[in-house]
Design a protein around this nucleic acid. Structure first.
Lengths: 197, 197
DNA sequence: AAAAAATTTTAATCTGAATTAAAATAATCC
DNA sequence: GGATTATTTTAATTCAGATTAAAATTTTTT
């Protein structure tokens, strides 16, 4: 009962719960998906989920934390590998999309942050804002190093992140589409950024 | 009780209901917003809404129909004015964004289509698909007339429409931001499309 | 293989929010 | 201004789906 934080079995199962929940939430929204929907995907019954999360609100919260993690990892990896700002932006997009459409996906769209209870809402909002800022910083770096043409990084960031955030709405696990997405999207989203076309 | 379809008072009030609902849904999602939330925005009490819509599901359905209308109008106007494919794409984006952030807004994000009852869901899904196809047709026209460089119109369309769809998630009625959006977004979203940069 | 701990289930409860009914108020018509 | 219709309200009702409790099963430990 007292749970070891590194309990791999528990954490693995919980991760499966979070993925199933993300899948449902992305398709039918928070309201539209009942705990039974999530449980069914795992061959469980709804009360079993309460062994892994305190309640439905926490389930969403954890899905969003996971989504934030994935985004942050992609961004950090991209930055760590250096190169121009444009290189970093493209690599980040590639890594993030790879995670979304690949093994680690699906990742929950953070579309109902306001529904979280205040403490969780503020935390997730903060993570989300911080992520946007870091992406904008990459764009600014690109402008400074001459790889990206002068632009409003805030607005450009919003445009690009909107595309990314919307992906789970229309992508539904088709293998061929996943490959095209990873190949083309980073290019499409940054085609207008390059200083020298 | 038997309602005249052109009853302007009724239709006007219903439109206010739909806008208030769109506002709430965009922020807190379908689940997160109660009918009371919507009613409060209008200085009404929840049961009053039932005078304008049959139930909550219909409220969402009508919001989505309205969103589809606005998008279609923007696209048709843009096409009617002619010019190259690129011109039409840019003008469509401008018109659509103007509607979203201006007087006719807010427009509901169609993020919970699957929650609608089958008949409504199919109808809205069809409208949504048709809109995407028409936008892709504009892109194709641009490729054919040489204004847009060769690209995967399906994927490019998804990228651009994702950005558009996400706008209501982060734009919240700031006047200055609205102006920047209308000015910059069409440019940003199509910067990578032009054949001759 | 018994004991302890972990996981899931079945069977109730509980609750918020949607919906309905009936009555009250406001607007419009003649 | 009385009658009719439109609009909104107050006061129930209802129900799906979240949550809890207690029991059953499965897994792990020694």
């Amino acid at each position: 009962m007292a749970r070891n934080p590194d309990d791999s079995r528990f954490n693995q199962q919980r991760d499966r719960v979070l993925k199933a929940a993300a899948h449902c939430f992305n398709r039918k929204g928070y309201s539209g998906t009942s705990l039974k929907d999530v449980a069914d995907m795992l061959g469980l019954t709804d009360p079993a989920l309460y062994y892994y999360v305190k309640n439905k609100e926490e389930l969403v919260y954890l899905c969003y934390l996971r989504a934030a993690d994935v985004g942050r990892d992609a961004l950090e990896r991209a930055v760590a590998e250096g190169g121009t700002g444009l290189d970093q932006a493209r690599r980040y997009l590639r890594y993030h999309i790879e995670s979304m459409v690949g093994e680690t996906g699906p990742i929950a769209i953070m579309s109902e942050i306001p529904s979280l209870r205040p403490a969780h809402r503020d935390e997730v909002l903060d993570l989300s804002r911080r992520h946007s800022k870091r992406f904008e910083a990459i764009l600014q770096r690109g402008i400074d190093d001459g790889s990206i043409k002068d632009c409003d990084v805030r607005m450009t960031g919003n445009a690009i992140m909107g595309s990314i955030n919307w992906i789970p709405k229309w992508f539904h696990g088709a293998e061929a589409m996943a490959r095209k997405l990873v190949e083309q999207f980073p290019q499409i989203l940054t085609a207008g950024l390059a200083r020298h076309s």
